[in-house]
Write a protein that binds this DNA or RNA. Structure first.
Lengths: 172, 172
DNA sequence: GAAATTGTAACTATAATGGTTACAAAATTG
DNA sequence: CAATTTTGTAACCATTATAGTTACAATTTC
């Protein structure tokens, strides 16, 4: 259906961060794993930060890491962070009001689409980022592979990150 | 999420035909109810015809009507006729194989997306076109409204339509 | 102050869908 | 058979969402 790989990329990004734990990842490193441009990653991180799922820090030795426990962060949280607004859409242009079908089809379809969305959300609600990471490990040559970071080892975030929650979390 | 109103339009079209019963509707009439161009409708009717949901007939007095019992045609049939290929997509470009997350994320995500798709299909499977039409009727000023057709009364299909199933159904 | 990194704007590229015009093929009508 | 109507279909442009790219100011570390 959709060209939409945003959900897949978001889960990928959060899985990377769950994997690397407290160590912040640079957008460039993440982009390399996802195989895209760093700005695309940063844009997505803004959505995830706005939803309170990640925290970022500017400056050298900066980067982003999870803001929540990956075992308590569900794929529904991720889905909602992206504000996709539902699986299907209604008509672009409103149907004819001179037709008994056209005048009411949007109401009925709205109810159906709501049912579909609820079903999707129920599935996503029961899968956590940690589940994804766990399911990642048994696949292939993974048990004896080193840390996923591509470049050098970044320093740990200093205490100020947590001290500046209002600024860094951009929870607005 | 998607700009995709194709599903909504397809349900609309089939509901119109269920409403008008055996009488074939012209693409122009349908387009007027949906508030779009007749060619858009014809393109969609090709998909629906290919899935065996409608039959069409060229020529003056031609048009399209349902090929199946609306009480046995589910929204899953409609969804599958459109070949949307799933609610979400995986990555456009394959992720890095040098990263332990990247190398396996598509496998795990594929399983998740399959779960989501199954949930969507389960919902759609339990709603028929006839259900939609029934839920249409109690809405607003509908009980005392005439036939939804916009133009003049078309003649009934003659026997040849059913006789030429192979040609008209385009079941290829 | 120099270097690194995010945040962000501005632009182009890609892909799915929708809209429009045009016309050949098929069916009906007289 | 000839005129008319309607579908089937191609060709093209428009619209929208997303992805990709370049550039640079603001922030942070050293």
């Amino acid at each position: 259906m959709s060209t939409n790989s945003r959900f897949a990329v978001a889960v990928h990004v959060l899985s990377l961060m769950a994997w690397s734990g407290e160590e912040p990842l640079k957008s460039e490193q993440v982009a390399e794993s996802v195989n895209t441009n760093a700005v695309v990653i940063r844009r997505m991180l803004l959505d995830l930060a706005q939803a309170g799922l990640v925290v970022s820090q500017t400056g050298s030795m900066g980067g982003s890491r999870l803001a929540t426990d990956p075992a308590k962060t569900t794929l529904l949280d991720v889905y909602q962070a992206l504000e996709c607004g539902g699986v299907f859409s209604l008509h672009r242009q409103p149907p004819s009001r001179d037709c008994p079908v056209g005048v009411n089809i949007e109401t009925v379809l709205g109810e159906v689409l709501q049912e579909v969305d609820s079903a999707v959300e129920l599935v996503l609600k029961n899968i956590t980022i940690d589940d994804v990471v766990q399911r990642l490990k048994p696949c292939g040559t993974l048990t004896n592979v080193k840390n996923p970071r591509v470049g050098k080892t970044p320093a740990k975030l200093n205490g100020r990150v947590n001290g500046k929650v209002a600024k860094v979390l951009r929870t607005a």
